[in-house]
Nucleic acid binder design. Sequence first.
DNA 1: GTCAACCTTTTTGTATACAAGAATTACATC
DNA 2: GATGTAATTCTTGTATACAAAAAGGTTGAC
Lengths: 218, 218
Amino acid sequence: MNIRTADKISKELERLVFTGELQNGERLDEIKLATLFGVSRTPVREAIQKLATSGLVRQEPRRGAFVHQPGPMELIEMFEFMAEIEATCGRLAAKRISEEALAELELANEKCQRSLDQGDADQYYLENEHFHHIIYKSAGNEFLEREALKLHRRLKPFRRIQLHLRGRMKQSMDEHREIVKALTDADSTRAADTLRDHVAIQGEKFNHLMTSLKDKSI
Amino acid sequence: MNIRTADKISKELERLVFTGELQNGERLDEIKLATLFGVSRTPVREAIQKLATSGLVRQEPRRGAFVHQPGPMELIEMFEFMAEIEATCGRLAAKRISEEALAELELANEKCQRSLDQGDADQYYLENEHFHHIIYKSAGNEFLEREALKLHRRLKPFRRIQLHLRGRMKQSMDEHREIVKALTDADSTRAADTLRDHVAIQGEKFNHLMTSLKDKSI
DNA sequence: GTCAACCTTTTTGTATACAAGAATTACATC
DNA sequence: GATGTAATTCTTGTATACAAAAAGGTTGAC
């Protein structure tokens, strides 16, 4: 689909940031990256600018682009926003979701349960992701769906960590069942509230995780 | 602040789209634009890519960038999303807003009323904008605030039209008072609901406006 | 040893050059 | 005349070249 090497480089840079090979605050040296990828500076620059709009790097005029990982405060804000987006999806989906989508949700939940039984956090994460994606789509608003996916993706590296926290997977599973129930009942308020809490708790857990470690930057 | 000519060009292109000098679906000819602005293709390309991420233009690989104005369906979705964002701001602001901000809201409302009395729709629009910006900020979540501002800005050209609809300004004013009341009472549910309706109605009005005209693209 | 002014180097931002894919036109065939 | 195909032209995407600003280093004064 994407022929442009600039787009490939953008994805690759994202990966480097997520894997930590490009550390927070580090400057993105255009020439180094260009030689690393075996291309010229032009596509590298384009890639960097794309990342800048997504917030992964910050650009300072005439000084360059720097990796920007959100600090604890910013992360809490992002999770709070994500929780509200999901709540919105739930609110709308409660009135708009199809029988097929409901069945898909049930199925996704069963797969989640199976992953939980096997103690496979990675698999659980995947099925969980699918579960949420169904709800985004079922809100019946493609614009909202895109925004939800965008933020979900952005928060991925931070959400992933805390599934390994003791008991979180089980709890998450219970919340999923609550959510499906609310959607089945077409109860938009309850769907919104359960989804909000389900996501917000991730932000809180993450917060605990962060504060338990030494945090350098607020 | 911005030294880069690419950024200036980006803003200028936005203006050209909003004023209609660049029509919907029109291809952005890099060379023509470059000569128009008296620069090379490079900064023009950077500007176009920036607009692409904001959704104002669509890029097709190896074919170029095309102005993309949302159709009625997409606009309805955007307004629905905006309504939910504002509802979220209201929900959070109800618990977090300061006395100063509340006073500011009252003041903004008075100015709105004055503009209404004078029948000055443009002035009303400005004060109305300020009113909403205060609420965004009072949600106490800078990430949310930025997203709200971004979407608000994107919808500006479409929101502006319908203030001229008969009776809308008066009605909008009444809704503002409801909103302030809910925020003053720290009633997050009511703040969310009144704000959602306040914005959603704009989407509906716009919908009426659109369907009353002949709409070519769904 | 510290600080500051100046010069060098590095790096960003822009212009230009080149390569490859898409659109268009011209032409041949039916 | 319509349709399919080859050649040409245009345009995008990438590489390279150049200009200007920032970073870094050196020398000199105190």
